[in-house]
Computed example of a mutant assay.
Amino acid sequence: MVALAAGEAVAHDHNHPELSDWFRSLHSKGDAWCCNGDDADMAEWDTMGGRYRVRIDGQWIDVPDDAVVEGPNRVGGARVWSWYQDGKPAVRCFLPGSMI
């Protein structure tokens, strides 16, 4: 099953400022602070072998278990906070969305 996001877009819609505090409160299971919605991207994602994975720069990247954000998703679609480690994309935080 695959959930698709339409293009890469900034995750936080500034027409909904009531979500700003919620975005700033997000932490992963590993207790990493996810920052705010401005540095997250809408994510194309799926599951394989019971684990999440996301597409970053055209590559499927496995989401580490401790990078998953637990709790309700108030924006619906998945969000990913990514970074580069040794020149390769990695996931700092991942907020699962609804499967479509």
Rank of each mutant, 00 (worst) to 15 (best):
M1E: 07
V2E: 14
V2R: 13
A3L: 06
L4E: 01
A5G: 09
A6N: 13
A6F: 13
E8A: 09
E8I: 08
A9Q: 10
A9C: 07
A11T: 00
H12W: 13
H12I: 06
H12Q: 09
H12L: 09
D13R: 13
D13F: 11
H14Q: 11
H14C: 04
N15C: 10
N15K: 12
H16L: 12
P17H: 10
P17Q: 10
P17G: 11
S20M: 08
W22C: 07
W22K: 05
W22M: 09
W22R: 04
R24L: 14
S25A: 15
S25L: 06
S25V: 09
L26V: 08
L26S: 02
L26T: 00
L26M: 10
H27F: 11
S28T: 14
S28E: 02
S28Q: 06
K29L: 11
D31T: 14
D31G: 10
A32N: 08
A32D: 08
C34A: 05
C34E: 04
C35R: 09
N36M: 11
G37N: 03
G37D: 06
A40W: 12
A40H: 10
A40N: 01
A40G: 02
D41L: 15
E44R: 08
E44S: 08
W45N: 00
W45C: 02
D46C: 12
D46A: 15
T47Q: 15
T47E: 10
M48H: 12
M48D: 12
M48K: 15
M48T: 11
G50I: 07
G50M: 07
G50W: 01
R51L: 10
Y52V: 04
Y52F: 15
Y52E: 00
R53E: 08
R53I: 10
V54T: 05
V54K: 01
R55Q: 14
I56T: 01
I56F: 06
I56D: 01
I56M: 07
I56L: 15
D57G: 11
G58S: 08
G58H: 08
Q59S: 15
W60H: 11
W60Y: 13
I61M: 03
D62R: 09
D62H: 01
V63C: 03
P64F: 03
P64D: 04
D65T: 09
D65I: 07
D66W: 04
D66P: 01
A67G: 09
V68S: 03
V68Q: 02
V69C: 06
E70F: 03
G71V: 10
G71L: 07
P72E: 15
P72C: 02
P72W: 07
N73L: 06
R74Q: 13
R74Y: 05
V75Y: 05
V75M: 12
G76V: 07
G77K: 00
G77H: 02
A78H: 04
R79Y: 04
R79I: 06
R79H: 15
W81N: 04
S82D: 13
W83R: 08
Y84K: 13
Y84L: 12
Q85S: 14
Q85C: 08
D86K: 11
D86V: 07
G87Y: 03
K88S: 12
K88N: 09
P89K: 02
P89E: 02
V91E: 01
V91S: 00
V91I: 12
C93V: 08
F94S: 00
F94L: 01
L95Y: 03
L95C: 05
L95N: 02
P96D: 00
G97C: 04
M99T: 14
M99F: 14
M99C: 14
M99W: 12
M99H: 12
I100K: 12
I100G: 14
I100L: 14
